[in-house]
């Protein structure tokens, strides 16, 4: 049995049929070839698979693809525009806020959500909001710096 899905991914309408137990992450990665969304634990803890669904951060490993019916999904592949990289991408690179890059797409989704909510550029608040995304390489130092800059705080 398959379910027919219609959703928007990175601004493009997608019509696809998938096994009902397919997760959103597997739909993105295996069916749509958007491998920029990474799976680190498949238990909803590490945050690597975080994407935006209707502008809100969501763990794509825990969300069934069927639950994205009619919704708008944004992944790392949808961030840059014709005019260039998104400021989040630029800030993370400039501040060396990524090393292996595996957790980075999930951090991007979290930071995009913070920016759209207008989260205050306060270090304690930023750290709290980032604490749902694990990184083993950077010690978070440069991720916090980049995020504070993006939120309009200290560079």
């Amino acid at each position: 049995m398959k379910v027919d899905l219609e959703l928007t991914v990175n601004g493009e309408a997608v019509g696809i049929s998938a096994d009902p137990r397919t997760t959103l992450a597997d739909l993105l990665r295996d069916h749509l070839g958007l491998t920029g969304t990474h799976l680190g634990c498949e238990q909803g803890v590490c945050g690597s698979c975080t994407v935006l669904v209707d502008g809100h951060s969501a763990r794509s490993c825990l969300m069934l693809a069927a639950a994205a019916q009619g919704r708008e999904v944004t992944t790392i592949e949808g961030m840059a525009s014709e005019s260039g990289l998104h400021p989040v991408q630029e800030a993370f690179s400039r501040h060396h806020a990524l090393q292996c890059g595996f957790c980075t797409p999930g951090f991007f989704a979290t930071v995009l959500e913070m920016m759209s909510e207008g989260v205050l550029a306060d270090e304690a608040i930023v750290r709290e909001r980032l604490s749902g995304n694990l990184c083993r390489c950077t010690g978070y130092h440069n991720i916090v710096t980049a995020t504070l800059e993006l939120l309009g705080g200290r560079p």
Partner: peptide
């Protein structure tokens, strides 16, 4: 020197093992 690795990794173009098809 800024990292040459970043351009791929910040745009979802990394090529990790699970991305291999």
């Amino acid at each position: 020197v800024p990292r040459t690795e970043d351009a791929r990794l910040i745009s979802g173009q990394g090529h990790y093992l699970a991305d291999l098809a």
